[in-house]
């Protein structure tokens, strides 16, 4: 009898857990819809240079009329410089999604590390870290992000830093709460009694238990980061390069160009709807994932 090796056993177990999780996820329609939307949007964003011509974003080469309503050539009309709103919306997805993902990864990474450390090491480390976390949690992150992006060079990097450095506290609290729950479990005590040190407990027990939650939180946070990006850009803190538009900078142009008063709905609606759809898709995915992980939310 050739028994499978322990490693193979462990991987088989992970595979089975993943498959079970996927089945539960797939049983929720809204989660699937969200995931489908995301796949389509991300594909479009990646393929934008292939299916369209970036030259259309160049103000000097724009061919359309000034804030012209939709017609055959420009399905979503044009902006003040005569660029196609459809093209702008498509290209904007690249910056918006990029900022959303990277800023979220940054903030979740900070939050996870701080959360686990604050929960695992009690007393002073915890008190100090939570004091800092509470501070960042309480003060308005937009205000902080404004301050940060004011003093730094305008651009995508600044926006990412501003969002990432101000939005981690909720992840930290969440991870800390989860770590505390896990660390209260007797199997941690058992592991310590077996001789396991800090590193062993954190990597073998805490991290694997916290990661799914971190993953859910990441999914939910990308949406918030995209909204934050649009807000900062709207306030004039985004990337000024017209060749790298985002949905936020588009809305800022629409605002500055008085699209509201001009009744140029074709200029106003697409970027906002795009934001709403992407954020909603992330939220739907995230909540479906959450339901997979928390059976209490699942029923009904």
């Amino acid at each position: 009898m050739t028994a499978p090796s322990p490693r193979a056993l462990a991987w088989r177990r992970r595979g089975a857990a993943f498959a079970a999780g996927w089945r539960q996820f797939a049983s929720q329609r809204s989660g699937l819809v969200g995931l489908g939307l995301l796949v389509v949007i991300v594909l479009l964003a990646i393929l934008a240079p292939v299916i369209t011509d970036q030259g259309g974003l160049d103000v000097t080469e724009a061919t359309g009329g000034t804030m012209a309503p939709p017609d055959g050539e420009y399905p979503l009309g044009t902006d003040r410089s005569g660029r196609s709103v459809l093209l702008l919306t498509l290209w904007s997805s690249r910056v918006s999604l990029l900022v959303g993902f990277v800023a979220t990864l940054l903030s979740i990474a900070i939050g996870t590390v701080i959360g686990i450390l604050a929960a695992h090491y009690g007393r002073w480390v915890s008190a100090g870290l939570m004091r800092v976390t509470d501070f960042f949690l309480v003060i308005p992150s937009l205000v902080l992000a404004i301050a940060l992006s004011t003093v730094m060079e305008r651009g995508i990097g600044t926006i990412i830093l501003a969002i990432g450095l101000t939005s981690w506290p909720s992840a930290a609290r969440l991870v800390r709460a989860q770590t505390l729950t896990i660390e209260a479990r007797p199997y941690i005590e058992r592991s310590k009694a077996l001789g396991g040190g800090h590193l062993h407990v954190i990597t073998k027990h805490v991290l694997p238990a916290v990661l799914p939650l971190v993953f859910v939180n990441t999914t939910l946070a990308v949406g918030s980061a995209i909204v934050a990006e649009s807000t900062l850009s709207f306030l004039g803190l985004g990337d000024p390069d017209p060749m790298r538009p985002s949905w936020g900078t588009m809305l800022r142009s629409a605002w500055l160009d008085s699209a509201v008063l001009a009744g140029a709905w074709w200029y106003l609606l697409p970027p906002g709807i795009a934001i709403a759809i992407v954020v909603l898709a992330f939220t739907m995915c995230g909540r479906a994932l959450e339901a997979v992980l928390n059976p209490r939310l699942r029923e009904g």
């Binding site: 462990a10 177990r13 199997y187 592991s191 077996l194 001789g195 694997p208």
Partner: peptide, 29 residues
């Protein structure tokens, strides 16, 4: 000196197979 806890349900990591749980101490040492 080894420990046996009150509630075996929570004394075992629910994600670890019996093999991994028993081998944990062996690996640590």
């Amino acid at each position: 000196v080894q420990l046996v806890l009150q509630d075996p349900t929570s004394a075992l990591n629910p994600r670890h197979s019996v093999y991994e749980s028993v081998a944990e101490g062996l690996r640590i040492h």
